[in-house]
Design a protein around this nucleic acid. Structure first.
Lengths: 393, 393
DNA sequence: AAATTATTGTTGTAAGCTGAAACAAATGCG
DNA sequence: CGCATTTGTTTCAGCTTACAACAATAATTT
């Protein structure tokens, strides 16, 4: 009468265990060292339940027992922490260099290696595979959970293709396939801005943060959105291109074909353009050099950076109005001169706060380089640590 | 040693039942009439489990048994459907008139009443309470689940206040409190665009739609965002003001204090302004009249509407780039002339599709008036029907 | 007309899970 | 040494689902 249709997800009697297992695992991650009794108190579960779950987690080598604590009286607790033999290979693929690191589930890096990123995707991926294999061999005894890769471009999750990466000048590249095949490991790929979001939420103690937006500023501007405890990826993972929304329809031409996009005004490249337009000398300056020029008192550099900051803020007003995030986290070289950018951006944001809305909390992510890498760690761990979400509300 | 902290949500042995109950209830809602056996097939649950759950749902008066079916052979199935004695009071609060309706859980309206919306919030709410009580009295035997209210403005969920409603000219009004107190019913309030989102998802057979944006077009422009199976409300429910993102920083002044906001260019009021700027005669024309003028061949009206449509599309490019929704649903009087607006908006949207992204499916919501009302029904039912979400992915 | 087959819905049982309470272990203090 | 106190384990009751067997029902075949 009716076809067996797509099995709608019914819950078996094991879901409760699954939910609680994830909860306990996350509490060990975020609050280690922690005893079973404390886990019970924090989670609201019974001590007996916690004990059973912990036993299981120890059996699966996710958790290990550590030192015993000391209390004013009573039996001593045995502290638990994540097993650092469970490791993740984190990859930050970037135009010039690619970082390959080995990390534990706490996001702590054990080893790290930087390789050149070849211009040709085939060569670059081959080199990456070699690097991964080197790391794999040096850590034979550890259990590798998988490979997480951050890419500077749009990653199509259904087709499993890096569709477009303007700075790499790659198009339609299958990154996951060859690496998964060559290494036999699970490979997860995510766009850099989304990786930063995951890093912020997982390793920035933002469990309570309901909504945030990460704005990555480099040659271009990327955005990653976190809402209701999940990444907002959009159809096929194509969300996040607020950088290509025009701030001014008659503005300069953008690489995307549009005019006056946000990233034409607020990116590092934009600041360099402002600087040169003001008639400054050397033509192939990079952004970091521009920052230090400003610091040494170059008035044109200061002005260029201020213009960039103002436009960054203007674009963020769009995010504040449309998404009302609790925080906006900024990632990029500009955070090195936050005392210069912060106030200007903040002032611009304050310009037009709609009634009832509170201004998003603006935060620089100082440890830039690490953010993407850490995010890929979270990406790989999501399948084991990811929490089931509340009801829609 | 450690305080009992905020009870992190641990799962008891009853969560599986809760999940499956919601699943079955939703399947009855969306696929009625349906037999227990079919529910088992579709849900993937065992027939025995389904029987137990259905028994419970019948006991709670959510579901009733109906006619018996007919098969080529074998025992006849008894069809199940939602109990239409469970009703919801749906309210669409608008500047001039407020609609108060009684609906069943299928979103079917049983009765409806339109009252004037007083300019003074106190009076308007008093009249609304009276109307609700009238409806309550006429349906004594039915079980009223609650009251859902759609409001044309920003509703602050933490403070429980209609913070700002430009067209009503209300500010900081407590809508929920007085109504809940006077009627003794549960009251849920939601902004109109979000109500439209809920209506679309719940009653538009969009269970499979991963992400959509609703754009409401009237005096202003509002947006409601659906992602990962939930409304994206932002901090305190303040998300959705893409209408106040400037398309042109040097554009006309907007009511929000900004310049050149999307709604200054793409709203009904904008079209009327274009029409008058073109030197057209009567000054207090409304938008529907403008639509019919265009239909009768008034070239200035046609031009004004086309300009409006073009700007609507331009703003939607922002949504497409930033959120990559699967669909964009348009709500408003303009859908009455969709053959005029659709192609223009679509063309504008196609203008700048970023590599890899597919254009969002653009859909008009023809039954405008009903959308908000239906959405409030979903709003009230969410606590019982809302599904638990998948893992973050 | 009786046996066969197919289908629905129920019943009974085993297994997984949590919560509650009792219990064993461990420790400092009087 | 006994006592209070705290951790971690054990035991059992209560829920829930999966699975299999079964009762009920109806058309088809023999």
């Amino acid at each position: 009468m009716m076809q067996a249709a797509k099995r709608n997800q019914g819950a078996s009697s094991e879901v409760a265990r699954d939910i609680n297992r994830r909860l306990v695992l996350n509490l060990v991650r975020t609050r280690h060292p922690i005893s079973r009794a404390d886990l019970a108190r924090v989670s609201g579960l019974q001590r007996s339940t916690v004990s059973l779950i912990v036993e299981q987690l120890i059996g699966e080598h996710w958790v290990v027992e550590g030192a015993t604590g000391r209390l004013p009286r009573g039996r001593r607790p045995t502290f638990l922490r994540l097993n650092d033999e469970r490791v993740i290979i984190a990859v930050d693929l970037r135009p010039i260099e690619t970082t390959v690191a080995l990390a534990d589930a706490n996001g702590k890096f054990i080893s790290q290696e930087v390789i050149n990123t070849a211009a040709d995707p085939k060569l670059a991926i081959a080199a990456l595979i070699q690097s991964i294999q080197r790391i794999t061999h040096t850590s034979r005894r550890k259990k590798i959970e998988g490979v997480g890769i951050s890419v500077p471009g749009r990653y199509h999750h259904a087709f499993d293709r890096l569709v477009f990466a303007p700075n790499l000048k790659w198009r339609d590249v299958d990154i996951r396939g060859p690496i998964a095949k060559a290494t036999g490991l699970e490979v997860a790929v995510e766009n850099a801005a989304n990786a930063c979001v995951l890093a912020a939420v997982w390793f920035g103690h933002l469990e309570e943060c309901g909504s945030l937006v990460v704005v990555t500023v480099s040659e271009g501007i990327g955005t990653g959105i976190w809402a209701n405890g999940q990444l907002v990826r959009g159809l096929n993972g194509m969300a996040g291109e607020f950088g290509h929304v025009p701030l001014n329809p008659e503005g300069p031409l953008c690489s995307c074909g549009g005019h006056g996009c946000w990233e034409v005004y607020g990116s590092n490249s934009a600041a360099l353009r402002y600087y040169h337009e003001a008639g400054a000398t050397p033509d192939n300056l990079n952004f970091r050099q521009l920052l230090s020029r400003a610091d040494t008192g170059d008035a044109r550099a200061v002005a260029a950076l201020e213009t960039m900051a103002r436009h960054l803020g203007r674009g963020m007003r769009m995010l504040a109005a449309g998404l009302a995030p609790e925080r906006i986290i900024i990632v990029g070289d500009l955070t090195r001169s936050w005392q210069r950018f912060g106030p200007v951006i903040e002032a611009e944001l304050q310009q037009q706060v709609l009634p009832g809305a509170s201004m998003p909390h603006l935060v620089p992510a100082y440890e830039d380089g690490m953010a993407r890498l850490r995010g890929t760690v979270a990406l790989v761990l999501q399948k084991d640590f990811g929490l089931l979400r509340d009801l829609p509300g």
